[in-house]
Simulated assay, not measured.
Amino acid sequence: MSEIVTAAMVVIGDEILSGRTKDRNISHLADMLTAVGIDLKEVRIVADDEAAIVEAVNTLRARNTYVFTTGGIGPTHDDITADAVSAAFGVPCDYEPKALKLLEEHFARRGIAFTEARKRMARMPKGAVHIANPISVAPGFNIGNVYVMAGVPAIFQAMLDAVVPTLKTGAKLLSVAIPSPLPEGTIGGPLGEIQKAHAEAIIGSYPKYQDGSFWTEIVIRARSEDVLKEAKTAVEAMLDGLLKRN
C-alpha cells in the first residue's frame, strides 16, 4: 500500500479574519489534494503578523509532508509572507533576480511604472524556487516542503495546477455513503462500537434535513476495499437490526 501523504494549509490575511474577504481557496485545495491521495489534515487562518505566520509554518511543516500558504505576497506594506517564511527557515529574504526581471518586463509591456511597491513581489527566501503565475506574472515560491501562493482564487488555482503534478502522492481514500432514516441519537452508540471494531476505517455521520424530515448520512472511508466492505456490512447490519426493533 502507498504511504500516507499529509498536508496543511496556512491562510494569511487580516481581511479573512475580519470577514471582509471570504476564503475560496480551502475547499479547492481540499478537492485537489483528495483527488491525488494527499490528506489535508489542518487549516490555520492567521493575521498579517510575522510571529503568527512563522509559528504556524514551522509547526505545520514539521508534522506534514507539505504545507501550502495563501495570501500576503502582493505589493503592499502588509504583504509580509515572504519575510515570515524566510524567518521560519532562517534565511535572508531579498529580491530574486529572475522574478525581478519577469516583473520588470511585464510592467514595461503594459506601460506601467515598476515602482518600489511592485518590486516587493519579487522578494522571496534565499534558495526558493519559483511557482509560475500564468495570470499576473508575479511568482509564488517553494522552499523545503512549503509552497507559498497568492490569495486571489484564480491565481491560487493556476499556481496549484502547476504544483500538484510535482507532489508525492499517497493511497487514495475510498468512500461509501449509507442513508439512515434513524437520527444520530439512535445510531450514535452502535456506530461508535462499529468504529472501534473497524479501526482502519473512518466512519462519520452527518444529519440531513430534506422534504420536511430529518435523516442521517453515514459515510465510511478507507484505503482498502476489504476494510471498506467489512465496515459497510457492519453498518448495514446495525441499521437493519435497529429498524426491525422500531
Results as ranks from 00 to 15, higher is better:
Ile4His: 09
Ile4Glu: 14
Ile4Cys: 11
Val5Lys: 11
Thr6Val: 01
Thr6Asn: 09
Thr6Lys: 06
Ala7Trp: 07
Ala8Asn: 07
Ala8Leu: 03
Val10Ser: 04
Val10Asp: 06
Val11Ser: 06
Val11Thr: 12
Asp14Phe: 00
Asp14Ile: 01
Asp14Trp: 01
Asp14His: 03
Asp14Pro: 01
Ile16Ser: 01
Ile16Pro: 00
Ile16Lys: 01
Leu17Val: 00
Leu17Trp: 07
Leu17His: 04
Gly19Glu: 00
Arg20Trp: 00
Thr21Ile: 10
Thr21Pro: 05
Thr21Val: 12
Thr21Asn: 01
Lys22Ser: 12
Lys22Ile: 12
Lys22Asp: 11
Lys22Arg: 14
Asp23His: 04
Asp23Phe: 01
Asn25Ala: 07
Asn25Leu: 02
Asn25Ser: 04
Ile26Tyr: 08
Ser27Thr: 14
His28Ser: 10
His28Trp: 12
Leu29Pro: 01
Leu29Tyr: 00
Ala30Glu: 13
Ala30Cys: 08
Asp31Leu: 14
Asp31Gln: 14
Asp31Glu: 15
Met32Pro: 04
Met32Leu: 11
Met32Phe: 06
Leu33Asn: 06
Leu33Gln: 09
Leu33Trp: 05
Thr34Leu: 15
Thr34Pro: 10
Ala35Phe: 04
Ala35Gln: 13
Ala35Pro: 06
Val36His: 08
Val36Arg: 08
Gly37His: 04
Gly37Ile: 05
Ile38Arg: 08
Asp39Glu: 14
Lys41Trp: 11
Glu42Phe: 07
Glu42Ala: 10
Glu42Thr: 09
Val43Gly: 05
Val43Trp: 07
Arg44Glu: 12
Arg44Met: 14
Ile45Arg: 13
Ile45Glu: 08
Ile45Leu: 11
Val46Met: 12
Val46Trp: 06
Val46Ser: 04
Val46Pro: 05
Ala47Phe: 04
Ala47Tyr: 04
Ala47Met: 09
Asp48His: 06
Asp48Ile: 02
Asp48Tyr: 00
Asp49Ala: 08
Glu50Met: 09
Glu50Lys: 14
Ala52Glu: 12
Ile53Ser: 04
Val54Pro: 11
Glu55Arg: 13
Glu55Lys: 10
Glu55Met: 06
Glu55Asn: 13
Ala56Cys: 04
Asn58Ser: 15
Asn58Gln: 15
Thr59Asp: 15
Thr59Glu: 15
Thr59His: 14
Thr59Lys: 15
Leu60Cys: 07
Leu60Glu: 09
Arg61Ser: 13
Arg61Ala: 08
Ala62Lys: 14
Ala62Trp: 05
Arg63Thr: 15
Arg63Met: 12
Thr65Val: 03
Thr65Phe: 03
